[in-house]
Structures are given as C-alpha cells and as structure tokens.
Design a binder for these strands. Structure first.
Lengths: 206, 206
DNA sequence: GTCTATATGATGATAGAC
DNA sequence: GTCTATCATCATATAGAC
C-alpha cells in the first residue's frame, strides 16, 4: 500500500528500518525463516539492538501486521481511491497485487502468514484476522455497487465473491513464487475475464 | 523409496511413521516450524534416529513431496475416478480438499510450502512444481471435457480456469485456518455456483 | 542395519556498558 | 535512551555403540 510514516524525505529511523527489512524478509522467506541475526547483519547492528526496539520476535511480528492494518485503513480512505468508480477501485486493488509481483514476487501478508498461522503469537493472529475482515468488507461493498451499476458481473453474494477474489489474489502471488510471473497473469487474467462484462481484459498492469 | 513390505495392515515401519508425522506437522504448522526434536519426541526416539532414515531435513522434505506426487499419479489413474463423468471427477477433487478441512484444517501441500518456497531445498522445489503441473493438466482436461458435454460452465481456457480453481482451493484451506470452516465453505460454495450451470450447489460435502 | 551419546553452531533473549 | 557482550536453549548433523 502506501509508504511509512516519515516525511518521505528523511532517512527512516532505526525502528522503521527494522520494520521495513523484517517486512521484506517476511514476504520473501516466511516468518519462521528469518531471525534477529539476519536483521542485525543486514542493518549493521548487533541482534540485541533489535531486541531493544522489539523485545521479542512476537512483538516485531505483531507490529508488522498492525502497521499493515493501519496502511489498509489509510489506503481505502484516500480521496484518489474513494473518488473512483467501483470497477476502477477494483483495478486499484489489483494494481496493489501486481506491484507485489514486481517486488521480487513478494506474496501478500496473508499469503506469507497463513501456513504458519498456528505458530504465530495470538496478537498477530488477531491483527491478521481483522485485516482480512476489513479488506473483505471493503471489497464486498465495491463489488455490490459495481454490479448494481453494471460495471462488474458475478453471481452469488458480494461477500462470498469478495472472499473468493481475495483468496485468488493471495494464491496467485504464491503460485508466481513457485512457478513464474506468467502463472500469476493467467490466474488474474481469468479473474478479469469473469468480472468485467464486456471482456475488457486491459491485460495486466505495467 | 516405496513403501517396504508391510501389507497395509501391519503397523507402519519407522520410516513411514516418520513420514506420516512429518506430513502432519508440515500441513499443520509449516516446514520451518517443526524440527527433528519434535518428530523424535512424538515418536519416542532420539533425534539422531531420524537422521538415520533421513540424513538431512532436506531429504525428509523431498521425500514428503515425492510421496505426494506418487499419490497423485496413483489417484488420478484409479478406475473409480476415471470411470466418472467430468463433473463428478471435479466433485472428487473437491472432496479431497473438504477432507483436509476435516483433518484439523490441514492446508494442502502447496499451501503449506508456497510462502517458504525460497527456503526449501532445490529438489523439494522441483518436486512441488511437477506436482502442480501434473495436477493442473489433469484438471484442465476434466474442465475441457466437462464444458464440452455441458456439465460444467466457465469462460476462458481450460488451463487458465484449472490454474485458478486450484489456487482458490489451496487458498480456501488457508483461509479456513486463519478464520473458520465457514469461510472455506463460502469460497468453495461460490466456486460451485459458478462452475455448475443449473445452480446445483449440492452444498458442501460431509 | 538401527539407534544413542555427543558436537557444533544458530536462535531468541538478558543484563549491563556507553 | 540506545546498543554491545554474553547466555541458555534449541537446531541440525556426526561419529560411534549395539
């Protein structure tokens, strides 16, 4: 989604640098596949320096998901998003996932955490559930209005379709990692084909 | 490599017991979240005993995926499957995923390994790719014939739809883990609604 | 051939220096 | 307030006993 808090010009503080790197490692390798040592080495500090900012790895993980939730709430309230028509809002969502693909095929946060979910701290689990719920509710509303205006097409309830679409998107990024970008484009292309009435494939972004 | 002598009635040998337990842990906690210690404790042996059967964790992981690939090849050749109509073959596939849900909400092997994919040994990666490719090819053929006979409905190419459907199924099991069974049923119910022409939801299995 | 005692290094975390 | 030296524990893996 959007970028961190800093005025976008100053170098990020240590805490933010840790979060950014941890996020990269989480989305590229998985939560149980990176350690404070990895973070420390890359940042040029000692592992214990990270324990100062995030006493335990659980704290770090929870902070990561909490930040992502804050970003979601900010994103869906942006005027440049809320001003759009439903079909364009859906496009904006797809663009977010396309963007993950361009960043070393990062999976989304849900896709990174779902498999290891039971090994995660309770606070992290709760934040992730909230994130999913709010994103699904947002998309369900977009789909409902989009179908009403004739911009989008689908059968069934908007909530069910929203849940399914988000599942496809998260899964498509995982498939891209295991196979290649083209697999992602095949899956998302199929999604576009089904959702837009006048086959307006628009190809895939970028 | 294959199962030794045991006539499928005797208690499984140690190697098989290790594989079975490792599979459970993989599908319930993730590959990087279980250790030889976990396996050993549960099996009542020392960690090094497992190193005898599987010298490294890489070997164990590769054996796991290789076994699953052998199972797939056996499954799709079963007469009781090949004798079915396409729509019923698709039902049989859905039943496999429904079955995962009933086993402590295990994710499928792809869903368990995708996020951590880059941390996996090369042999394991290769086996998983082959597994996905063969399963997708099988489903694409089922979908193609099913549409030709009018049993199933979808737009786009059978291969694209097969890739998308498998992504939805893998993702739905992940969603079930993070939320609950009902989320899985919502996603798969939506899939049924879309694939079967005369809305023949048949609800969800079991 | 099968498994136990043991080594080596990484991991998450603490107590204390600056 | 911020970070470094150090720790206890757990990880994977080897060498050797039975």
């Amino acid at each position: 989604m959007t970028k961190p808090t800093a005025p976008a010009v100053l170098p990020p503080d240590t805490r933010t640098r840790i979060l950014d790197l941890a996020e990269t490692l989480l989305l590229e390798r998985g939560f149980n596949a990176f350690s404070y040592q990895h973070l420390a080495r890359e940042l040029g500090v000692k592992p214990a320096a990270i324990h100062y900012h995030f006493p335990s790895k659980d704290d770090l993980g929870t902070a990561l998901v909490a930040r992502q939730l804050r970003r979601l709430r900010k994103w869906r309230a942006l005027p440049r998003l809320t001003d759009l028509q439903p079909a364009q809002q859906l496009e904006a969502l797809l663009a977010v996932y396309d963007n993950h693909l361009g960043h070393d095929r990062r999976v989304c946060q849900f896709g990174a955490l779902a498999a290891d979910f039971r090994t995660l701290p309770a606070a992290m689990q709760a934040e992730l559930r909230t994130f999913n719920r709010e994103l699904t509710e947002w998309l369900a509303e977009v789909l409902a209005v989009g179908r009403a205006t004739g911009e989008l097409r689908f059968v069934g309830s908007p909530t069910a379709k929203a849940t399914q679409v988000l599942t496809v998107l998260a899964g498509a990024l995982q498939v891209a990692r295991v196979h290649d970008d083209s697999a992602y484009h095949v899956i998302v292309g199929q999604l576009r084909l089904e959702l837009w009435p006048e086959s307006k494939p628009r190809a895939t972004a970028r």
